[in-house]
Amino acid sequence: MSANQRTLLGRSASVAERQMVYESSDGLEVESIEQYERSRLMVLFEDVILVTYHREIGWPMVVLNVAVASLFFLIGGLIFAANSSVVVAAIFAAFGVPSLVLILVRLARQVDVISVFGRRSKAVIRFPYRKQRARETYGHLCARARQIQEQIASENAGFETASPPEEPPAPPFDPVLTMPKP
């Protein structure tokens, strides 16, 4: 498995950890990074129960950027109030503009989230900007899971037709045992 080529499908980051989701030949590899520790789990295509797609705002990112923008605007406001120097206040406030832009972009476009639930594990991929790719990835993952599961079902059917289970030999007929009791 380690020698398999895998392709990066996407990432998902939270406050505590970062996740990277790769596609390999038999499933999705989810690598979680917490500080300096990297843990890995797999969601096999043959185990997939549900694949979901939804769009959300992602409030932690918005709150963080609101805090950053507010801080710089506050500093700019305080400088303006203290010195009435518009230029210096504007320079400080300008540092908050990128955060403001990020907030507006996030509110307008939101994040596309794909969740893949298997029998034993799950994978989450977030697409903040590439909506078309998110939709393609969703379709691709559903198609791959369907393909692998149909392949396994056909292999199972092949087992049943190729080698029917042998019935155990019937016990010898004993008329005494089968006679009803008087």
């Binding site: 997939v48 129960i49 979901t52 396994i152």
Partner: peptide
């Protein structure tokens, strides 16, 4: 949106 599977 969801797609459900019945894994064999």
């Amino acid at each position: 949106e969801s797609t459900a599977f019945t894994p064999p």
